[in-house]
Design a binder for these strands. Structure first.
Length: 806
RNA sequence: GCCGAUGUGGCGAAAUGGCAGACGCGGCAGAUUCAAAAUCUGUUGUCCGAGAGGACAUGUCGGUUCAAGUCCGACCAUCGGUACCA
């Protein structure tokens, strides 16, 4: 019989058309069915187009989604575009085209690319964060946050390019200079919108205990939120009514505090300026520190800098000693109180600082040698040189000092979080306008909900203004408005929201994307939320993932959504690297274009290689030959038709175990995202068919069903060619026979003293006790013993026999 | 510095504490072909040995165990994140 060759280009187009025409993957709002909501991070439609990293996450959840449909779930697997942001705006500036136009072109390009790969997205629910119908609700959520006191304005430092006269994103600052012009970048204070995410620190922490996130995501979030329990302690400045408050996790070491350090920006310097004798030097130091980012301050590990504040001393409340106060940039205004008590004997950073500036180092916990290094171990050692704490363990001393501090009224218990409030302003054009009006009489006035959306107006030019304001500031017609409260002259806020805004709630919009009276209906949210499975990159663990949990927790608190947590399960994929093992990037010249790959091997082989190339959660270099190997496998699958015995019934006796165990393995491996071993198992099964020289219809059907989530086009085509009835996507997921997972006889290893000395065929049902009784006295085993005496026998059924001999 | 990962053949990797290297890539040899491509068959951790066979092998050093890639301790290297977090 003549066999048509496997032509992926033809069959892939064919099946994509069939799926589209039949709305195969449209999620039904049939709230009576069990639902499954699969979510991938919606892409930023960059000008560079899709890269091979996107399909890794998309294919993984496409496999899960297709499997869930076959298991009878009503599946929502949506796609959209996170389209506000800097690259598009910069492109628009450079090429004098409206960002909206760039965005539309990029989205069209991305959509074409995605459709070629055959993902089972519900394109009818496509969303776009730059669409006013969408960002209307982003603005609405902002108004709610404002209404509940979670949005506020504060003076915050930004990166400021002295030459371009613009605020820069961290990413645009390279080695302390402006990425574009190479000029010096300084930190300039601006009045910025902030979101009070810190108010949710504890909830964000507690919520992690209720969700199924992979461990490394949980620990990264926990560490980012960074709860620490300690004390706030007040130190008096001698001969003044001023005091200095510090946070410490080690109140037990208070007797060892030999000096204090404040951040260069600390208000104490202004407050006591008339007593400080080296004020000029301190201001200079502050200016220098202002040129460094927090990151640089933290990078300078070895060379600690600092200055004493001359003219003042502080008093250690534990022992009444006078101790100097220093300024150093390693103390940041943004954490704790912006001041520390330094205990050089028991803190590595303080020890470095004290060593550099020859400040006294006192041991207060025995067990180390503080002349060589700080002894920071809290498990070991008892207190010394510490008055009433002497002889206590660190744990006990902490508690006793805590009580002392409270009784004396010089401090209290305090929980601190590393987490900082979220800077929500951007002096940029391509973002959601912040729906606020500033009125001289009424102050900060929110827009009425009925006035939303506040449309982002078209402007002449997208460049930032010389004053560093958004280009919107030049739109006087738009900026000047009557105050909604008093009707007097007022001005609109011209800052826009960061790109994170639109992505902080998009998963809710997918539930009901065309709703014009709410961000989504309560029924749709009740049914679809929470997301059952969210896969994305580790790089979004601390920002996007935390921000979106924060917004969802907030919307839950104000009664808008039922569950507190948005994502039931979160997994993460590894990055795909270039063929040379480096991160893929234009500048490295190692970018793989998925379109070219698909032209060569087809979408099915491409999808398959994305999943087969290695462990899903590990970073992996791309290899074109590996991808071609997957095409080769699909060719072999196609040619199985040549050895297909169409009349045979059931499973071949010799392949029952292989077929059943593959069904089980693939079913389980998909769920554990072990796609590479699932595919390897299917490859082995195909090898078994060829070795047997025959494949039966029931075997072929089973293989096509379990392979179809990975390579849907070829499986549907083969299914149709063979006339197996309704398409695979309408078939139920296959089960397997628990009794046919193992052959009757298995080969086990025979070890003598842990070394393999031989092999033995035994019944797979042989129990541990039976084996240990029968096997050592069998002829085969006796022959290996060489007359030695058995001391101990271990039989692991189906695995091995180990004899300890003398 | 801190946090999180990862170290296994020429390469990507696999392995509920139980026969290390499944599956694939690449290589080598052969079949087919006028030839090539494609396909098929065999082979492929390293070292010693003609061979049977043996020894050594999962970053390093220790430990637990009848048995360790897997568990424990210390260290080294690489990658990612980062806000010196007191």
């Amino acid at each position: 019989m003549f066999l048509q060759p496997y032509q992926p280009d033809i069959i892939e187009k064919k099946w994509q058309k069939i799926w589209e025409e039949n709305n195969t993957f449209t999620a039904k709002d049939d709230f009576s069915k069990p639902k499954f909501y699969a979510l991938i991070e919606f892409p930023y439609p960059s000008g560079a187009g899709l890269h091979v990293g996107h399909p890794r996450s998309n294919t993984a959840l496409d496999i899960i989604s297709r499997k869930r449909r076959m298991e009878g779930f009503n599946v929502l697997y949506p796609i959209g575009w996170d389209a506000f942001g800097l690259p598009t705006e910069n492109y628009a500036i450079a090429n004098h085209v409206p960002p909206a136009k760039v965005t539309k072109d990029n989205i069209d390009h991305f959509r074409r690319q995605l459709k070629r790969i055959g993902f089972s997205f519900d394109y009818s629910r496509e969303i776009n964060t730059t669409d006013p119908h969408y960002y209307r609700w982003t603005q609405w959520i902002f108004l709610k946050l404002f209404e509940h006191g979670l949005a506020y304005k504060a003076q915050m430092p930004i990166n400021w390019c002295t030459s371009c006269k613009v605020g820069l994103a961290n990413e645009e600052v390279v080695d302390g200079v402006c990425e574009r012009c190479g000029s010096e970048v300084v930190r300039k204070v601006k009045n910025q919108w902030m979101l009070r995410i810190t108010q949710y620190a504890q909830k964000l922490l507690d919520g992690l205990d209720t969700v199924d996130f992979i461990d490394r995501v949980k620990s990264q979030q926990r560490n980012w939120i960074g709860r620490s329990d300690g004390a706030e302690v007040t130190f008096q400045i001698k001969d003044s009514d001023t005091d200095l408050e510090v946070f410490t996790t080690r109140p037990d070491t208070l007797f060892g505090a030999t000096y204090m350090v404040v951040s260069p920006e600390h208000p104490l310097i202004e407050k006591l300026s008339d007593r400080i004798t080296n004020l000029t030097d301190l201001i200079d130091y502050r200016t220098q520190a202002g040129k460094k980012s927090d990151f640089e301050r933290t990078e300078l590990v070895t060379a600690k800098t600092g200055l004493p504040i001359k003219g003042i001393v502080a008093i250690n409340p534990a022992n009444g000693q006078e101790i100097p106060v220093w300024v150093s940039d390693y103390v940041l205004m943004s954490y704790g109180t912006g001041a520390i008590m330094a205990v050089p004997g028991h803190d590595a950073r303080d020890w470095e600082f004290a060593n550099t500036f020859k400040l006294p180092i006192v041991e207060v916990v025995a067990g180390g040698d503080v002349s060589i290094a700080a002894h920071a171990d809290i498990e070991e050692g008892v207190l010394v040189n510490s008055g009433f704490l002497n002889g206590l363990t660190v744990i006990d001393a902490k508690e006793k000092m805590m009580q002392f501090i409270i009784e004396k009224g010089i401090g209290n218990r305090k929980v601190n979080y590393k987490l900082r409030d979220w800077v929500f302003s951007r002096q940029r054009y391509w973002g959601e306008p912040i729906p606020i009006i500033h009125c001289e009489n009424c102050g900060t006035v929110p827009l009425k909900e009925s006035d939303l959306p506040l449309i982002l107006p078209e402007v002449e030019a997208y460049e930032l203004t010389d004053s560093g304001e958004s280009p919107l500031a030049l739109m006087t017609d738009w900026v000047n408005v009557p105050c909604p409260v008093c009707g007097g002259a007022a001005k609109r806020e011209t800052d826009t929201m960061p790109q994170w805004a639109g992505s902080s709630w998009y998963f809710m919009r997918y539930c009901d994307p065309h709703n014009d009276s709410a961000f989504a209906s309560a029924e749709a949210l009740d049914y679809w939320m929470p997301v059952d499975w969210y896969n994305g990159g580790m790089e979004h663990t601390t920002l996007h993932l935390l921000y979106s949990r924060f917004w969802h927790l907030f919307l839950h608190d104000i009664g808008q959504v039922k569950a507190p947590e948005p994502y039931q399960k979160r997994t993460s994929h590894g990055m795909i690297l270039g063929e040379n093992g480096e991160k893929m990037s234009k500048s490295r010249g190692n970018v793989i274009n998925p379109d070219i790959m698909i032209d060569e091997i087809g979408a099915d082989a491409f999808r398959m290689y994305e999943m087969f190339m290695g462990a899903f959660d590990q970073a992996i270099p791309w290899n074109n030959n590996g991808a071609r190997g997957c095409k080769r496998f699909l060719d072999r699958l196609w040619r199985l038709q040549e050895i297909l015995d169409v009349k045979a019934k059931g499973l071949s006796p010799g392949l029952e175990v292989a077929v059943n165990s593959t069904l089980k393995k693939v079913t389980e491996d998909y769920e554990r995202m072990k796609f590479n071993t699932a595919i390897a198992a299917m490859m082995s099964l195909v090898n078994d068919f060829y070795a047997a020289g025959i494949v039966r219809p029931d075997e072929f059907k089973a293989l096509l069903k379990i392979l179809s989530p990975v390579a849907p086009h070829i499986c549907e085509e083969l299914w149709q060619i063979q006339g197996y009835g309704d398409p695979i996507y309408m078939q139920p997921w296959p089960g397997y026979d628990e009794n046919k997972l193992q052959s009757d006889m298995v080969e086990i290893a025979v070890q003598i003293n842990g070394k393999i000395k031989g092999k033995l065929m035994v019944a797979s049902s042989l129990s541990k006790l039976e084996g240990e009784e029968i096997l050592p006295v069998s002829d085969e085993v006796m022959a290996l013993l060489d007359g030695k005496k058995i001391v101990k026998t271990i039989f692991v059924p189906g695995r091995l026999l180990n004899l300890v001999v003398k």
